[in-house]
Design a protein around this nucleic acid. Structure first.
Lengths: 330, 330
DNA sequence: TGCAAGTTTGTAATCGATTACATCTCTCTG
DNA sequence: CAGAGAGATGTAATCGATTACAAACTTGCA
C-alpha cells in the first residue's frame, strides 16, 4: 500500500502538495496536478482514512444501532438515512444488537474510541440513566423512539395518538370488545401505544379489561398465542390492535384457523405498514409511519449536533396515517 | 477527550506504561497498574481507535455488503457472522447498497482507505472483472454467492443441486407441467438455480418450455404477475418453483385469488425458508440454507485470508434441505 | 527598476496511539 | 560481594495524513 510520502517522492513534490491534490486541487498549478495525478495512478494510491481521521478528528461515519435487521420496517428508514448522510459526505454503518445489552455496549465502543462521529438509535437496551449519560458525552439521536426528556434528540411519530386513532377506528366500526397485543420490551413506543389504547377506550366510555391486554415478542407466534388466549375468554374480543404487523398476522392466522371471519365481524389492526401487511391475505390494516423521512430527519438532527454539541436535542414529530385493508371491515 | 499523554501525566508514568496497561497489563507492577487505573477513571479515558489502528495497521472491523436489509434471509446469516467475528476480536459493520453499483463502489472506499480490514459480499453489482481485481488487492469473500473461479473465497450451498431437488420433488408428486420464476439479476445463484431446474426436467424426460420460465424482481408482485402469466397460457403449469419465498407467496396469493387449490393439485415451492414461508397460509414449502453456519464460515474464511493474503480463496459448500409445508401436497 | 500583493510550494509540527530498545532496579548465585 | 539475569519502566521513532507558517517565485504598477 502506497503512502503519501511515496507518492510525493514519485511525483517529485512535497507531501503537502499531494495532500492538496486531494483536498484543495484548485490551489495547485496545472503542472503540479499532473505530476501528482501520474504518481497516484502509477502507485494506485488511496489516502488512508486513519491518517486523515486522526489528524482531522472526524471519521465522517455514522453508526446506526438497531435490534435486528429482520424487521422490514427498518429498511426504508435506513434508506432515508443513507441518502441524507451521503448528501453531507457521511457514511452509514449499521449494527444489529439482537436486542442484547452486552452486544449493544460492545458496539458503543465505536463511539467511545472515536471510530464513528455519532450514532442513531432505533431502540436501545440501555437504561434511561445510561442512555442519558451517553447522550451528554457523545452525539446521539433516537429514531422512531423517544425517551422523554433525554438530551439526545429524537425523530418519531406520536405513538400515543397513532394508537388512539387505530383503536378509535375499531370503535367506530362498532366494536366494543377491543383487545391489545403489545410487545414486552420497555420501549417508550410500546408504553405510549398502550396509553393510546387505554385512552381511546376510556374516552369512549368503554372500561379497560386487563384480560384483553397481552404482552410478548414482536413475533408471529405472539400473535397466534394471544389470539388463543383471547378466544378462551368467556367474552372474547371482536377486534384486536397489535403493535406490529407480524403480531397482527399471527392473530389473523390463528383466527382464520378457528374459522373466524376476519374482516367480517372480527377485525385486526397492525403497526408499521410493512410489506407483510400488504402481502398477507387478507391484507392487514396498519398504522403507517413516514419511514424515509424519519431516517432523513434523524440524520439531519445528528448533523446539527455535530455542529453545536452543547445544545440539547430537538424532538421532532412526524405524521402517521392509518392504511385500511381487508382485516378490518368497512 | 483525554489522550494517552494526559493520562500518563496524571498517573505520573510514561505513555508506554499507559499503553501497556491496556495491551499487556501483566507486564506492569501492581503499583503502576493502580496509578494508571485511577488516572483512567478520573479522566474517563478510552483509547482512540484511530491512533491505535494507524500504528498497528488493522482496524479489526469487517464490512458486510448486502443489497438490502429487508430480506429476512440475511438476518440469521449475519448473526453467524457476528458471533464468529466477536470470538476473534472483530466487529461487523453492515452496509446496504440497494443493489446500486454506485452505492456499492462508494462503500468499497472503506476497503481502499483501510477503514476496514476486509469485506464479505452477499452479492455484488460489480462486474466479474472488477470483483476479481478487488479480490486480488483486498481480503474479500463471498457468502451465499459464488463467482466461478474467483480468487476471493466463498461459502455457499450447491444452488444447482438444491434447485434440482426441489423440482424433482415436484415431479415425484406427479407434476409434469412445472414452471419456474427466477430473479432477473445476474447473480450466480440465479443462473445455477435455473440450471438445476432445467436439468431436473431434462433428466426426467420432460421438455423445457420457455413460456414456463419467468424473470423479475425478488418481490411479491413478481410472483403475482408470473402466476397471471402462467394462468393465461393454453396449458397452464400445475406447479411453480420460485427462487425466493416472497415470490412464491405472490404466486400462492394470486392462485388463491383465482380459486386454485394450492397444495391440492397446484403446488408451489419457494427458496430460503424465511419466516415468511412459515407464517403464510398455507405454509410455503421452501429450500432451507444453513444460515448461521454460512455466516460463520464466511467470516472464518476471511480471517484466514488476513493470515495468509497470498493464498487463493477456498470454496466451501454447505448442505441445504427441502422443508415441506402445505403449499405442496403430500 | 523596485516593491507590494498574489500564487505556488515546502518544512515541520501535530493528531494518538504502539513498541523496539535502552536503562534502571532487584534478586540470586557462586 | 560481583555480576548475570529477570522484571519494570521510559525514550523516542513511527504509523499516514493535514495544515500553519515561511519561503520562493510571479505579476503588475508606479
Amino acid at each position: 500500500m502506497a503512502t503519501i510520502k511515496q507518492v510525493a517522492a514519485a511525483a517529485g513534490v512535497s507531501v503537502a502538495t499531494v495532500s492538496r491534490y486531494f483536498n484543495a486541487p484548485g490551489q495547485l498549478s496545472e503542472q503540479a496536478r499532473d505530476k501528482v495525478r501520474q504518481a497516484v495512478e502509477q502507485l494506485g494510491y488511496y489516502p488512508s482514512s486513519l491518517g486523515r481521521s486522526l489528524r482531522t478528528s472526524q471519521t465522517k461515519k455514522i453508526l446506526v444501532i438497531l435490534p435486528t435487521i429482520s424487521n422490514p420496517f427498518y429498511s426504508r428508514v435506513l434508506t432515508g438515512m443513507e441518502e441524507e448522510a451521503e448528501k453531507n459526505g457521511y457514511s452509514i454503518l449499521t449494527c444489529a444488537t439482537g436486542g442484547d445489552l452486552l452486544s449493544e455496549e460492545n458496539k458503543l465502543k465505536m463511539l467511545y474510541d472515536r471510530f464513528v462521529d455519532g450514532a442513531v438509535f432505533f431502540s436501545t437496551s440501555l437504561s434511561r440513566r445510561q442512555f442519558d449519560r451517553l447522550a451528554v458525552e457523545y452525539p446521539v439521536v433516537q429514531c422512531c423512539e423517544y425517551l422523554e426528556g433525554s438530551v439526545a434528540g429524537a425523530v418519531t411519530i406520536d405513538n400515543e395518538q397513532a394508537a388512539y386513532e387505530a383503536v378509535e377506528y375499531l370503535l367506530r366500526l362498532g366494536h366494543t370488545r377491543v383487545a391489545f397485543v403489545n410487545s414486552d420490551n420497555r420501549f417508550e413506543s410500546s408504553i405510549l401505544r398502550e396509553k393510546g389504547y387505554r385512552r381511546a377506550l376510556t374516552e369512549h366510555g368503554i372500561p379497560v379489561r386487563e384480560e384483553y391486554i397481552r404482552r410478548g415478542t414482536y413475533g408471529f407466534r405472539n400473535g397466534e398465542e394471544s389470539f388463543r388466549h383471547f378466544a378462551s375468554l368467556p367474552e372474547p374480543p371482536t377486534a384486536v390492535f397489535a403493535v406490529a404487523d407480524s403480531i397482527a398476522i399471527g392473530v389473523v392466522h390463528a383466527a382464520l384457523e378457528r374459522g373466524l371471519p376476519v374482516g367480517k365481524g372480527f377485525s385486526v389492526i397492525g403497526f408499521d405498514d410493512t410489506s407483510l401487511a400488504r402481502m398477507y391475505r387478507p391484507g392487514i390494516t396498519s398504522v403507517a409511519q413516514p419511514r424515509k423521512e424519519l431516517g432523513e430527519q434523524a440524520v439531519r438532527l445528528l448533523l446539527k449536533r455535530f455542529q453545536s454539541p452543547q445544545k440539547s436535542g430537538e424532538l421532532i414529530f412526524l405524521p402517521h396515517r392509518l392504511v385500511i385493508r381487508e382485516s378490518t371491515e368497512g
